[in-house]
Simulated assay, not measured.
Amino acid sequence: MENEKEQEIRKNLKRIITYFWQGSFFVQKLASEARNRFKHCMNLFTSLIDLGVIIENKVTTHQKRQDIAYQISEKHISLKKIFEENDTCVEFELILKRVEGV
């Protein structure tokens, strides 16, 4: 049971991080789109914001002057190793442990 929960958190965490990965770097995504995409795991998404893994920026879009966008924090840029190496990295495991503790 506990292992299933950990696997579910791991899978959703990877999906969230992958959402911000494009090409070979992390990009900004509009908050409205990100929240809509992760409404099924909003607790995990907001935990990542609270932990500072995902940060909020104000951006100007063609629809709004002050829209909100999310991006992976510079402090957690080493998460890119998930995509460049072998599906996991120390940073990912540390975040997973912090999120499970919440």
Rank of each mutant, 00 (worst) to 15 (best):
M1S: 13
M1K: 11
E2L: 12
N3H: 10
N3S: 10
E4Q: 13
E4D: 15
K5P: 00
E6M: 13
E8N: 10
I9Q: 02
R10K: 10
R10A: 06
K11Q: 12
L13I: 08
K14S: 11
I17C: 04
T18C: 07
Y19G: 02
F20W: 04
G23N: 14
S24L: 07
F25A: 15
F25P: 00
V27S: 09
Q28T: 03
K29S: 09
L30Y: 06
A31F: 01
A31R: 10
E33L: 02
E33N: 04
A34M: 02
F38V: 06
F38M: 04
K39W: 08
H40D: 15
C41Q: 01
M42D: 13
F45K: 03
F45W: 06
T46A: 03
T46K: 02
L48A: 06
I49H: 02
G52I: 01
I54E: 01
T60Y: 02
T61M: 05
K64M: 01
Q66D: 14
Q66G: 06
Y70C: 04
Q71M: 10
I72V: 07
E74S: 03
K75F: 14
K75Q: 14
H76W: 13
H76F: 15
I77N: 07
I77A: 09
I77S: 11
S78I: 07
L79Q: 10
K80A: 04
K81S: 09
I82P: 03
N86M: 11
D87R: 11
D87K: 11
T88R: 07
C89I: 05
C89H: 02
V90K: 06
I95K: 02
L96T: 06
K97H: 09
E100W: 01
E100D: 00
G101H: 12
